[in-house]
């Protein structure tokens, strides 16, 4: 029995090592390609180490070279305004995280604890909204944002996401229901208002799930592509995913400029790595917590 146990551990180690390798290998390929001369792509694309490493690709995607020089180095002359795109991504994500978390917490608490006419119907509708595929509301929302004159503005980019999302409300409601009622009842008997109870008692007890839902919203919004792509074409409002896709489609005849693209990707990954280094435990635990109530 002891033998089978250690054999099992061995198998586990192999699975884990294999998956870690498969997870990490692409990052190495990205960085390695980013460090190659674009002319070497055809002859050395499969080398595991860049021979004659260069930072020219980083320079050209960051716009540190003139358009002519950059085209000579094998690019399309296109660059990515990284600081602006990252700033836009941060603002876009940040605003949605804050507003949606607050709004979801408030409504989830009401659904969990307060009795009011129409509660079940409204909650049912919120839950049902999760079933509607995004593509359905996509076209009318685009028209709505246009009619409001919010195209090419941060307001138009965040509006459909920031107030309500079924999952956030549902998730937090489940949590509030599971919270012991005693504290709130005690406060109620002492004459505290419902709002006071929500704000002063329920919220402080819910910091962990609030961080969880904020993290999940943050991950999703940081990666959102199609909506900002259609609503905010203007370079001044492009988020990172949109900037990257338009960089990819810059090259003549649509052939990707691989070395430039990999340099752009390497830079785009940095905020994510930074997030993991700083808040790794929070992020990981938030994601884990999202499934097991």
């Amino acid at each position: 029995m002891l033998q089978s146990f250690s054999l099992f551990r061995l198998v586990c180690w192999i699975i884990l090592a294999l998956i870690l390798a498969v997870t990490l290998a692409p990052f190495w390929i990205v960085i390695k390609t980013a460090l190659m001369h674009s002319a070497d792509v055809f002859t050395h694309s499969t080398d595991l180490w860049p021979n004659d490493a260069t930072v020219v690709n980083f320079k050209r995607v960051l716009g540190l070279m003139s358009t002519e020089e950059s085209i000579k180095a094998g690019g399309s002359g296109a660059k990515v305004n990284f600081s602006l795109a990252m700033f836009n991504s941060f603002v876009f994500t940040g605003l949605i995280v804050i507003i949606q978390t607050a709004s979801a917490a408030a409504s989830a608490y009401a659904f969990a604890r307060l009795r009011f006419p129409g509660r079940n119907v409204i909650f049912g509708l919120f839950v049902a909204s999760m079933m509607i595929p995004g593509v359905v509301t996509f076209i009318p929302n685009f028209i709505l944002i246009r009619d409001l004159g919010w195209l090419n503005s941060m307001l138009g980019m965040i509006a459909p996401f920031c107030l309500m999302q079924g999952f956030s409300v549902f998730f937090l409601r489940q949590f509030f229901i599971s919270l012991p009622k005693e504290l709130e009842e005690a406060a109620y008997l002492e004459g505290a208002s419902y709002f006071y109870i929500f704000w002063k008692i329920a919220i402080p007890l819910s910091i962990t799930p609030l961080i969880t839902i904020a993290t999940l919203i943050g991950i999703n919004m940081w990666n959102e592509f199609l909506w900002p792509f259609l609503v905010a074409k203007d370079e001044s409002h492009q988020v990172l995913t949109v900037a990257l896709q338009s960089f990819k489609s810059q090259t003549p005849q649509g052939q990707p400029d691989w070395t430039g693209l990999m340099a752009a990707i390497s830079i785009s990954i940095l905020p994510t790595i930074g997030l993991l280094l700083l808040f790794g435990r929070n992020v990981v635990e938030s994601v884990q917590f999202s499934g097991g109530k």
Binding site: L230, K233, S249
Partner: peptide
């Protein structure tokens, strides 16, 4: 803007 993005930008 690159070819594909270009036409989306024009029609939208």
């Amino acid at each position: 803007a690159g070819w594909n993005d270009y036409w989306t930008a024009i029609t939208t």
